[in-house]
Write a protein that binds this DNA or RNA. Sequence first.
DNA 1: CCGTATCCGTTATGATACTG
DNA 2: CAGTATCATAACGGATACGG
Lengths: 122, 122
Amino acid sequence: MPEDRTHKVSCSSYVYEVEVAFEILSGKWIPLIVWTLSTEGTKRFGELRKIMPSVTQKMLTQQLRTLEKRGIVSRKVYPEVPPVVEYSLTEIGQKLLPILKEFNGWAKDYLSTRNAGKPSAD
Amino acid sequence: MPEDRTHKVSCSSYVYEVEVAFEILSGKWIPLIVWTLSTEGTKRFGELRKIMPSVTQKMLTQQLRTLEKRGIVSRKVYPEVPPVVEYSLTEIGQKLLPILKEFNGWAKDYLSTRNAGKPSAD
DNA sequence: CCGTATCCGTTATGATACTG
DNA sequence: CAGTATCATAACGGATACGG
């Protein structure tokens, strides 16, 4: 197994808790995955693949497993053939949504401010 | 120059703006630096070093320059001998504080929840 | 359908020494 | 005081092929 960092978050050294928050949400596709599960609700693996075609299968699996270890995502396996696996946010994971929405709003503000002085392509 | 990614953020491809927000705050020490400048206000380079002794000089310089390029931090140089350089948040950078506070609160909640079922060391 | 294993290039970070 | 340069390594991410 590639054994990603797994960041024993609850044991990591940190000065302010905000660092823990960003550590938990670190990973190239993690914000996108959390946002998707927040706004769309429970999804199967294949559905997530369709929604996020730019994420390779390997990365989607890996980032979901990381989120599971960090306690943000819950994984439910139905022992059928062919297999069915559903992903959803845990309770603490769901509490991220309002904050992510504000962050989203901030980024819109940021982008419009940045492009304000740039008429054409930068 | 090591020429960090510099992520032409305003041109990066993204599906949701929230991804841009996380991209802007990406970097091992960036959340800590932004939080510090948010809560403590304008600081000189040497002061930041004292406040964050775990950050090497190279990394502090690099992450501050990255934040400057991304438009979050403002750098003011006083042409004196010895040199004086002050760092502060830009207007858009200051707007991050309330959101970072919420992340901080969420992380406290997260950490207490995680440690709830773990009496001793993890 | 939902993964894992392997290979391998790129990026991020750190140690250390030196400078206007 | 506030950086730069250089070197070395580790973490991350992507392509591809295979498996229960």
